[in-house]
Computed example of a mutant assay.
Amino acid sequence: MSNKVSCEIIKDMLPLYYDDVCSDESKRMVEEHLVGCPNCKNELDRLKADFILPKEEIETIRSDSNVIKNISSFWNQSKIKSFMKGMIISALLFSVINLGYFGLFNWQIISVSTDEVEIKNVSQLADSKIVYYAETNDGYSLNRLNYDMDKEGSFYITPLRPIIKREAQLHNGFENRYYSIDIKYQEKARGKVIKRIYYGTPKDKILIWEKGMDLPKASEEIENMFHE
């Protein structure tokens, strides 16, 4: 079954798979595809890297903090022990600084303003999937998209960046490329009917599609792009 599923569909499913909110059948489809597709496996590893390392760093800091508390109960005001206390506190502060530095450059937590995004060429593929071109115009890289849905049937595709942005590199990122959305799959995975699709957040969004909208057919070039 996995051999018949394109990488684009698997990449759309990876956030759901990583968050463990998709069905068992979808999990099996993703896992079977990952066995034979190193590109999609790398994409999953990149999603994991956004969150796994910070958690490990936090646990290390917590452990260091507990050690300091245990040691401090035996300290007195002598110069030697005060010096030792200062050294350990300095080591803890150094760990905190390192964690903060890593977070500033790697935690994908800041959404991209729609003032910096343009959605183009929204159309429909022969298999009913919706396809669109997302272009960011501020010159910074984009490496994570978050998928979410509210109770009213609004589906949000939110581009995320770290606090400190990096310059975009040609052909390496999500900032300028075509995307496809499989509405039927997303509805099945979430158990809800999608009424509209937005790029952005509930407070800052661009409408891509809404139920009843008459979309043009995708060009042959775009069809080939998603069915190679």
Rank of each mutant, 00 (worst) to 15 (best):
D138Y: 01
I157P: 05
A168S: 08
E152P: 05
F155R: 03
A134N: 12
S78H: 13
N76M: 09
K85A: 11
V96I: 15
S123W: 02
I80V: 15
D127S: 05
Y156Q: 04
N146T: 12
I110L: 10
D150V: 08
D150W: 03
V131F: 04
M87H: 11
I157T: 07
S82I: 08
Q124F: 01
T158M: 03
N66D: 14
W75P: 14
V96S: 10
K85R: 13
S154I: 00
G153S: 03
Q124I: 08
L145E: 10
L160R: 08
M87C: 14
I163K: 12
Q169I: 04
Q108N: 07
Y147G: 01
V112F: 00
I80F: 15
M87E: 14
G86D: 02
V117Y: 02
S141Y: 00
L93W: 08
I130G: 07
E116H: 05
P159T: 00
N172R: 09
L160V: 01
F105G: 13
S72Y: 06
K165Q: 10
K85Q: 15
V117K: 07
V122W: 08
K79W: 14
Q169S: 07
F83S: 15
D150Y: 06
S95D: 12
L142E: 05
R166N: 14
S111R: 02
I80S: 15
L104I: 04
S154E: 01
V112R: 04
A134K: 14
S73K: 15
F102D: 09
E167N: 08
L145W: 12
V96N: 07
R166S: 14
V122F: 04
W107F: 05
K81W: 11
E116F: 03
I71E: 12
V117E: 08
H171W: 00
N143Y: 05
N143L: 04
Y101K: 11
Y133D: 07
D115P: 03
L92Y: 14
Y101H: 09
I109K: 06
E135G: 00
K79D: 15
N98H: 09
I68K: 09
Y132R: 06
G86L: 01
R144T: 06
F74Q: 15
N106E: 09
L125V: 07
S78Y: 04
M84Y: 14
L170V: 06
D127A: 03
L92G: 13
Y133C: 02
I80N: 15
A91D: 11
G86V: 00
I89C: 10
Y101D: 11
A168K: 05
F102K: 08
V117A: 09
V122S: 05
N66L: 12
I130W: 02
D127C: 06
